[in-house]
Write a protein that binds this DNA or RNA. Structure first.
Lengths: 197, 197
DNA sequence: AGGTGAAGTCATCGGTTGATGACATCGTCC
DNA sequence: GGACGATGTCATCAACCGATGACTTCACCT
């Protein structure tokens, strides 16, 4: 018969998948450096040496996990209510996602660093940039990077153990707060809030 | 004679000081984990094993460096123009300071984590909190943590290599941008910018 | 049924880290 | 000047890391 039986004792595709999932979780929770291939193997219930076989190295597994997450795409223009909500929900469920950690501290590994930087721009900075360009906002790229960086700080701060209330706060409340300030719709034209003329 | 000659070949106080300075710099540049005691010794021009003698361990040296920086106190209420400027200047000169890194990712070492968390609150969150309380802002503690976290994202993002324009931007421009949004004076009372009635 | 290659296991390598204790050297004080 | 404590140097340890290659075990096909 075909090799698709789910209970197979030996199943390369399944092992590969489990490694990828475990890696994605752990990289998100602890970051790249603090995650060991032995940790990944343990969580996946798979021998860690298979990482080398199926992905080549820890770095390449990281990049693969990054690309696998790209499909789920919980990122986009943060000014859309639904997107912003998704970003918070996802961060709550999955921990602080490798993507965000690079926004805040470079990785030692050059390949991993560059792959993450690229993904961060595609999925977070670029949508913001396009919106600012569309709206004719001043300094659109700088502003997109600024908003992305600030939002990263908030998302990561919720899981850092350094901010108690921020961690406990309801995502909806946070979104309301952010929308009134950082994500204020008319930023760039009104340096301060004032009466529209 | 007394033991205060500056050119002494053996001088515990001087070695201690050099270790402390080098540690402060490196912890700021690379964070706690990625800084090795050998790195610190090399930069200080002092044998790394003296760290154990003078401070007890890498962790205790980290905590000592944290407290030594507290004296310089470039932190405070971010709504004061001068303070905000200082924060940016300092981050540009010294790199992203250990304090900020904990706002974004917990440390493995529990003692180091807690010491940093406490310092972060004292020097960044608490001044903001007091201001919000003074102004009668809604949810002052949450709001202080939110602003601190967002600001941390911006400051760290400038050195992460992930945001080109943010890294290259003039601090003054950034402050202007932030003041119009995240640090908007009347946040908390006007969820959106609109005409005052 | 038996062979063959894929899938999984295991021992181990070289490198790095924080820490430790033995040792050498210098300065000071009697 | 000689002894003793402070200061600095060195070799080394145990733990952990990513990686590798040899080995075993299974599934499938003829």
């Amino acid at each position: 018969m075909s090799g698709e039986a789910p209970g197979r004792r030996r199943d390369a595709a399944r092992s590969r998948e489990r490694l990828l999932t475990a890696a994605s979780e752990l990289f998100g929770e602890r970051g790249f450096d603090r995650t060991t291939i032995r940790d990944i193997g343990r969580r996946a219930g798979v021998d860690p040496t298979l990482i080398a076989r199926y992905f080549g190295s820890k770095t390449l597994l990281y990049i693969a996990a990054l690309q696998a997450e790209a499909g789920e795409a919980a990122f986009a223009d943060l000014y859309e209510d639904e997107r912003l909500r998704e970003v918070f929900d996802r961060a709550d469920r999955r921990g602080p996602v490798p993507l965000l950690q690079v926004a805040v501290r470079p990785l030692d590994d050059p390949a991993a660093q560059e792959a993450t930087r690229a993904a961060l721009h595609t999925r977070l900075v670029e949508p913001l940039h396009e919106r600012f360009v569309r709206e004719g906002t001043d300094r659109p790229r700088l502003r997109a990077e600024l908003v992305a960086a600030a939002m990263t700080g908030v998302l990561l701060g919720r899981h850092s153990g350094a901010f108690d209330e921020l961690a406990a706060a309801d995502p909806g409340d946070l979104i309301d707060l952010l929308r009134g300030t950082l994500l204020s719709e008319d930023q760039g034209r009104h340096p301060r809030c004032r009466a529209p003329d």
